[in-house]
Design a binder for these strands. Structure first.
Length: 968
DNA sequence: TCGAATGAAAA
DNA sequence: TTTTCATTCGA
């Protein structure tokens, strides 16, 4: 789940980036994948998405290994191939935006999450068990799972779904008929799957339901397989592939990937930190929708991410804006985190960075590098901030410093490693130089903000975006600058190190003011979300065209570096990760910058992002903005724009603070309001947090940090996602057994499993009752299946009809078989368990899910009866009654069983049974029960001990039963 | 490629 | 209502 969740989040992010590019990429990827898998033509490409991701991953690997140029070429080739291969995709690709969307996978429901989370455990316990069996067990567990526990998963699923839907507004669950769609585009079929994105997909594919929803950029998210690859890596790969076709597109994709990664990181951070989350939420404000729904804000980070992604995903200018906004938000978050704790330090850093950047600017070509550095810096800062925040929320500035140091270290390491690469990068940059200076300037601008000369640069509020290609990171200068910054941070541990930051401080002050405004606005309820969104959007739009190129160019550099540095894929991946963040920044910056650049005014509005102040004031209104204006004045129009950007950047910082405030506010609200979601978030945050902490706390050396960071970017993000997913409570099989049985019988399973049982709550026996009932039913089903069909196709064989027939008539045969096998006992156990929980209510619930399933269950129940009936012809079908009967029967069974196993249980069971129905006992032949019990005993043999009767003999019997099942 | 589970959504 | 699909991964 965690992975899926994480992936989910990531995916949305990806989508936003470059819909077109991505689509192309995907198409290519997919095609390949499909071709490999053969799904393409085939029916469903369930794993299309997954495959897609893997492809992306491949690309990433390739990309990392290969040089930029080579990669591009290859990518292009791939793309071509893909296009040729993937009909639908191609089509979608043609549309670009949409195709990716198609890939999005529908969000997993609670049960699926549960399965995902626990399947491994089941498998561990039952190695030989195939997935089907595991699924059954999981279903049993699920049935047994306490409502509370279930609720967690349900909440998570809901959250995901919400996030997913947000990210993919147009997404449709079952494109109704993708098949038709497939027919139109046979090859595409795999993609067709339904993936939702009606918009493009629909267009591309005939079918998809609606052809449209394209409005929303439906991203194809695919839930990347966590195992296969990190979402970020996927993104990168995708970007690389995209590169294959048009460089620009590729670049964009890369940048998008980077962004995604960064987002992931942020998410992780956010998870770790509440603040981060808050920031995220604030970022979410970019969109009106988000702003509209405070709920979203309140929602977990995932949701926010989704929002961000959605924003980014929007192909339209708005989408771009969204991206920008996302970047902004991201930056804000980082800044805010820092700002909150270490605004001063940030300022200093920025100044330093600016200085370094300035130098680079002078160099000219190096500008890109500078940008990269900036990005990196920003990324690091962000990371540091996050780490700090994560830790810091708990720890103090020291930790933050440490983090900053770590980041710095990372930077240093990068420099050291990449000097050559950097050169290459520079070359690459030159190649890509065609990119407008804007983007690059913008990046530099950001840094510049502090530096007076750079005011022009400052003008580029985009700096916020920070998006610089990771590739550029290589440049030593940048690194140095970063180092400097880091050093500054370190030395000036004090967040408010006065060093160069005087101006910055001023800016910070202005920021504070802006913050105040924002706070006020918040109080009023007028968050600058819209504003932010607008500004970012604008930026994005412009940036998309111009920046994209730049961004793209940067990524290649990264690759080169990676290659040079490390041939090994891992290294490359690491590098990519590292670079990714920067790329991400670059992308955002590029996007944002271009937009702004073209329109200086717009840029200003963006800067104003300050929630409090309406965009209308482009920043000028604010003190910071005023600064920017000055800068702008000094500089040419561009410069002015840059200055504006710088102002924006500052504002972002301020906003970050604001966001933090907001986050706090929101949190407060949330805390009061939502429980579950918040809890989940908390869990995630905790995990991620811990993770982050470990990383940061380690203080580890750069390499570690770099790796970690990079990992954060890719692996870590994945991990974080996983963690989040993992954050979901995972119950040891034992616990389930216990639940079922109450008595813990470890034997059941290998005995093992982690004894996390603690999580499992036995408490709600009532709920257990229901669960037990369900379990029993399911078990019966299983039993039948097994007997009837050895294993394989049993499912189908067990058509409802058959079931029904069996139930009605001679389930005996099956039953007998069951007896032979321990399974019967298992069933019996279930029955026992049920009686324990005696409840009619359970009976009612059984019908869950699809009617079919219900039918099965009911049938099963019937069968059970029949089984019972077998002993004593109860035969009759009881639609409603069956449940009760079953329960009763179960109750009785338990008694018998207990008798075998434990007298204690028997007594209690007797109680339960007695009240319910004596007649039931009649149904269940005691003899049959005895047989089962004997069987069980035989199987058990050793178990003997009834744990305790603590009071609930019921559990005892159940446990044995469960165990038997498991064993058997 | 199917299936085993559950659940949500669409047709 | 029924169908589809989400995850997992061994046959």
């Amino acid at each position: 789940m965690t992975k899926a969740l994480l992936q989910f989040i990531l995916l949305p992010v990806h989508l936003p980036f470059t819909i077109q590019d991505v689509t192309v990429m995907k198409g290519s990827n997919r095609n390949k994948d499909h071709s490999t898998e053969g799904e393409g033509d085939g029916k469903r490409p369930k794993r299309k998405c997954l495959q897609w991701h893997p492809l992306l991953a491949k690309k990433l690997l390739d990309f990392s290994e290969e040089e930029e140029e080579d990669e591009e070429e290859e990518d292009i080739d791939k793309v071509q191939l893909l296009e040729a291969d993937g009909l639908e995709q191609d089509v979608g690709e043609t549309e670009d935006d949409e195709s990716p969307e198609q890939r999005a996978r529908r969000p997993m429901n609670a049960f699926l999450l549960f399965c995902k989370r626990h399947r491994s455990l089941v498998r561990q316990e039952h190695p030989r068990l195939d997935n089907r069996g595991a699924t059954k067990i999981l279903a049993d567990w699920w049935a047994v799972l306490d409502p509370k526990e279930k609720q967690k998963y349900t909440d998570m699923a809901k959250e995901y779904k919400d996030a997913f839907m947000k990210a993919n507004p147009g997404y449709r669950w079952c494109p109704a008929t993708n098949k038709p769609v497939k027919s139109p585009a046979p090859t595409v079929s795999p993609r067709k799957k339904l993936w939702a994105f009606p918009s493009d997909s629909s267009r591309d594919l005939p079918t998809p339901k609606k052809a449209k929803t394209e409005e929303v950029p439906q991203l194809n998210f695919g839930m990347a397989d966590p195992t296969q690859m990190g979402g970020l890596s996927m993104l990168l790969l995708a970007g690389e592939r995209a590169l294959g076709a048009p460089e620009v597109s590729v670049r964009h994709t890369r940048s998008a990937a980077l962004l995604v990664e960064q987002f992931d990181i942020l998410l992780s951070l956010s998870q770790a930190r509440p603040f981060a989350l808050g920031f995220m939420a604030s970022s979410g404000t970019c969109r009106p929708d988000i702003s509209e729904s405070p709920e979203l804000r309140q929602k977990s980070p995932l949701f926010q991410f989704a929002e961000i992604s959605s924003r980014t995903s929007h192909p339209d200018a708005p989408s771009k804006q969204c991206q920008a906004s996302a970047l902004f938000q991201f930056a804000e978050m980082c800044l805010a985190s820092e700002g909150v704790k270490m605004e001063d330090t940030k300022l200093i850093k920025s100044k330093e960075s600016d200085g370094g950047r300035i130098e680079e600017m002078e160099k000219g070509k190096e500008e890109r590098d500078i940008k990269v550095e900036k990005i990196i810096e920003t990324a690091f800062q962000k990371e540091a901030e996050f780490g700090k925040s994560a830790k810091g929320s708990m720890k103090e500035s020291k930790d933050l410093r440490a983090i900053g140091q770590l980041q710095m270290d990372n930077v240093m390491a990068v420099k050291v490693e990449d000097p050559k690469e950097m050169r290459k990068e520079s070359e690459d940059d030159q190649k890509y130089s065609h990119f407008p200076d804007f983007s690059y300037s913008a990046s530099s601008k950001i840094i510049i903000s502090d530096v007076p000369s750079r005011k022009d640069h400052m003008c580029h509020p985009h700096g916020i975006m920070i998006i610089e290609d990771p590739t550029t990171l290589n440049k030593p200068e940048k690194i140095k600058k970063k180092k400097k910054k880091n050093k500054l941070d370190r030395h000036g541990n004090d967040k408010s190190t006065p060093k160069k930051t005087c101006k910055k401080r001023q800016s910070s002050e202005s920021d504070i003011e802006s913050v105040m405004y924002t706070i006020e606005a918040v109080a009023k309820g007028d968050w600058g979300v819209d504003k932010l969104g607008e500004t970012p959007r604008k930026k994005v739009r412009t940036s998309s065209s111009g920046k994209g190129g730049i961004l793209d160019a940067k990524p290649p550099k990264k690759k080169v570096k990676s290659k040079e540095k490390k041939v090994s894929k891992e290294k490359c991946s690491d590098i990519t990760k590292e670079s990714r963040p920067p790329d991400f920044l670059n992308i955002s910056a590029s996007k944002s910058v271009p937009g702004e650049m073209p329109e200086g005014t717009k840029a200003e509005p963006l800067t104003p992002t300050e929630d409090a102040l309406p965009p209308s004031l482009p920043g000028q209104a604010k003190p910071e903005e005023s600064d920017c204006h000055r800068k702008t004045e000094t500089c040419g129009s561009r410069k002015s724009e840059r200055s504006c950007k710088g102002a924006l950047y500052k504002t972002l910082v301020s906003e970050g603070m604001l966001t933090s405030l907001r986050a706090n506010v929101d949190r407060g609200k949330r805390s009061s309001g939502k429980g579950n979601s918040s809890d989940h978030e908390g869990c995630w945050s905790e995990e991620s947090w811990t993770f982050n902490q470990s990383g940061t706390s380690g203080s580890k050396k750069f390499k570690k940090k770099l790796r970690e960071d990079s990992f954060l970017g890719s692996a870590k993000l994945d991990e974080e996602f996983e963690k989040k997913f993992n954050s979901l409570p995972q119950y040891s099989p034992i616990t389930f057994d216990r639940k079922c049985v109450s008595i813990p019988r470890k034997k059941k399973k290998t005995g093992n499993m982690s004894s996390d049982s603690t999580k499992t709550s036995k408490g709600p026996f009532q709920s257990q009752k229901k669960n037990l009932f369900h379990k029993i039913v399911s078990r019966y089903k299983h039993k039948k299946e097994k007997p009837n069909v050895p294993e394989k196709g049993s499912g189908d064989k067990w058509s409802h009809k058959q079931f029904f027939l069996d139930a009605i008539h001679p389930t005996e045969a099956i039953f007998s078989e069951d007896k032979n096998t321990t399974e019967p006992a298992y069933k019996v156990k279930n029955a026992l368990s049920i009686p324990n929980t005696p409840e009619p209510t359970a009976m009612q619930e059984p019908l869950v899910g699809s009617q079919k399933r219900k039918a099965r269950k009911t049938k099963i129940t019937h069968l059970v009866r029949t089984a019972d009936g077998r002993v004593s012809p109860a035969g009759g079908t009881l639609d409603d009654k069956p449940k009760e009967q079953l329960q009763r029967s179960l109750a009785k069974v338990p008694e018998t069983y207990c008798g075998d196993n434990c007298s204690h249980n028997t007594v209690e069971e007797a109680r339960s049974s007695t009240p319910e129905m004596p007649a039931v006992s009649a149904f269940f032949s005691l003899a049959a029960l005895a047989e089962v019990a004997a069987m069980e005993n035989v199987h058990r043999g050793q178990r003997s001990t009834p744990l305790t009767h603590d009071g609930q003999p019921k559990e005892m019997p159940q446990a044995p039963v469960l165990i038997s099942c498991a064993d058997q």
